Simulated scan of single mutants.
Amino acid sequence: PLDEATYETSVQGLYIVPSGDDLGTAEYDPRAARDGSLRTAIRKSKAPVDITIIDAPPALGKLSINGLIAADQVIVPLKVGALDRKALKDLHKTIRRVQEDENPELVVAAAVMTSWDKSNYAGLTGASLRRDFPEAIIAPARRNVQVAAAADYGLPVRALHPKATTTSDYDQLARLLLPVKGTAA
């Protein structure tokens, strides 16, 4: 059960369900399907959480599809670059297919342009995102070497560099997406 795989972290109120090496084999397991079992497990969970974040792999396989089926909202991270922009077409089709077939309530809440800089290409990427996901907040997360350093240390950028530009970019997006606790949404 999901609750047995849920662990409290050192951050108060933050719980995690870590993946394991066996999770990758689900992509190739013929018994694993687009069945909504993750959505069911999340709804049955007794963990004291307000928000569940599903970090799905970038490949559009069974794990990502099941994440989309289980989600109410999706945040699309897209690195500003040619390959990622090409992959956006497949992602757009996959999200729309899940909305049509398994999860009509799924909303694309935001698209985050990671490694953003002031370039013409970043502008083209933003335009593609606005075209494909007109309902979404389109937000930049500025390129910052401190983000890569945080990953090397296995820490969130907020813990290692709380004043980094990227941290403030994500803070701004969070304020747009999340209601202030205690207020009506």
Rank of each mutant, 00 (worst) to 15 (best):
P1K: 14
L2M: 11
E4S: 04
E4L: 02
Y7A: 07
E8K: 15
I16F: 07
P18W: 00
P18V: 04
S19R: 07
S19I: 04
L23R: 04
E27C: 09
Y28R: 02
R31Y: 03
A32P: 08
A33S: 15
G36S: 03
G36K: 02
R39F: 05
R39M: 12
P48T: 08
P48G: 05
I51L: 00
T52D: 13
I53C: 14
P57Y: 04
P57C: 04
A59F: 07
L63K: 03
I65V: 15
N66K: 06
A70I: 06
A70R: 07
D72V: 05
D72G: 13
V74E: 06
V74Y: 03
V76W: 00
L78M: 11
L78A: 10
G81V: 04
G81C: 02
G81M: 02
A82D: 00
R85K: 02
K86N: 13
L88V: 10
L91A: 08
L91P: 06
H92P: 10
R96P: 09
V98N: 07
P104N: 07
P104Y: 02
E105D: 15
L106H: 14
V108Q: 10
V108G: 01
A109G: 07
A111R: 05
N120A: 00
N120K: 00
N120P: 05
S128H: 06
S128A: 13
S128I: 07
L129M: 05
R130H: 08
R130M: 12
R131L: 11
A139P: 00
P140S: 12
P140K: 01
P140I: 07
P140D: 11
R143N: 13
V147P: 03
V147M: 03
V147L: 04
A148V: 11
A149P: 04
A151I: 04
G154F: 06
L155K: 06
P156S: 07
L160I: 01
H161R: 13
A164K: 02
T165W: 08
T166E: 15
T167Y: 09
Q172A: 01
R175K: 13
L177G: 00
L177C: 12
L178C: 09
P179D: 00
P179K: 02
V180H: 01
T183H: 11
T183N: 14
